[in-house]
């Protein structure tokens, strides 16, 4: 049987998504299921990402699996100049599954080709981070009860933010989504994604500021606007306070509306939002553990 990797969100079908989300709900009800007993998982973090690593390692521990690996390339043979090819071949001999984070784009696709065991991409540079997308979808499903007819507002850096691109691709598989993009011109949603939506006949709207339009939203998905993304620092100064979500903007939003953010945030969500029941980003992070348990179970056919 062909091994199942998870490299890019578009590798999976709608059926895969639904199966994983169903498993995630099951793990949320009953997180400690020793399905990985006797199995070893490699957690290879060629660049540090404490948040993602702890989420995966918690998921593996709750499944009763053992973990080997490293948390940044400095403490591994990579610092001695070993190629990704050789590290992957070696580790692939020892374990049942590889979870990999790497700063170079395409690294996990390549590792999946080299390894005999399945590979889960935990982020390859600015390219893909599919487990984030699945946990975003789980959060939407949990809070809205469905993935159909969802009006999503994406706010902030829509140009370089890989999470919004993947979420757009995934949500486009469901019935009647509506997308609203709010971003400075420099960080607007790239043409290729708008073209994709047009071809699929999916509605989208673009706005230059956060205003009462958000009252139509089921989901507000916030992302960081990073200073490094601007050629001209004056442009950054102009927009940096335009894309901040504040509690007083939420008064007339729908009762079921929820705010998501892949975290960590900088200043784009004002702390006064945190106590609003519509703030969902910390629970979203908690959902990540169940979703990653589900992804592992799906890939290794544990359930």
């Amino acid at each position: 049987m062909k091994k199942k990797d998870l490299i890019s969100i578009t590798d999976y079908s709608k059926e895969d998504y639904l199966r994983i989300l169903e498993l995630a709900a099951d793990f949320e009800k009953n997180p400690n299921q020793k399905l990985l007993e006797g199995k070893v998982v490699a957690s290879l973090f060629f660049e540090p990402s404490t948040r993602t690593r702890l989420s995966f390692e918690t998921a593996i521990n709750r499944l009763g699996g053992r973990i080997i690996g490293f948390s940044d390339a400095g403490s591994s043979s990579v610092s001695k100049g070993e190629t990704l090819h050789d590290t992957t071949r070696m580790v692939s001999n020892y374990v049942d599954l590889i979870v990999m984070r790497h700063p170079l784009e395409g690294s996990s696709r390549y590792a999946a080709e080299v390894a005999d065991v399945p590979v889960i991409n935990a982020g390859d540079g600015a390219n893909q981070h599919p487990t984030q997308t699945l946990l975003d979808m789980y959060s939407i499903l949990k809070t809205q009860g469905t993935l159909d007819n969802i009006n999503i507002f994406m706010i902030g850096d829509l140009k370089y933010g890989r999470t919004v691109h993947s979420l757009l691709m995934a949500m486009s598989q469901f019935e009647n989504p509506i997308f609203n993009f709010i971003a400075p011109d420099e960080l607007a949603m790239p043409e290729e994604y708008k073209l994709f939506l047009k071809e699929k006949g999916i509605r989208y709207f673009e706005h230059s500021e956060i205003n009462e339009n958000i009252n139509h939203a089921e989901i507000i998905y916030m992302t960081r606007v990073q200073k490094e993304r601007f050629m001209d620092p004056i442009e950054y100064e102009k927009v940096k306070n335009v894309y901040i979500l504040r509690n007083n903007m939420l008064a007339n939003t729908k009762p079921n509306m929820r705010i998501l953010h892949p975290l960590p945030r900088v200043n784009e969500i004002h702390p006064d939002v945190d106590s609003n029941e519509k703030a969902y980003y910390f629970e979203q992070a908690r959902n990540g553990v169940f979703t990653r348990q589900a992804i592992i179970a799906h890939i290794l056919n544990l359930k």
């Binding site: 784009e105 395409g106 690294s107 390219n127």
Partner: peptide
């Protein structure tokens, strides 16, 4: 960054647009 044979899917022939199988750019 490593000795790997490149692999592209041709998404447009004129003008040529090649999509990298690895980085997806």
């Amino acid at each position: 960054n490593e000795e790997i044979t490149t692999y592209f899917n041709v998404i447009s022939k004129n003008p040529l647009d090649l999509k990298c199988k690895y980085c997806e750019k």
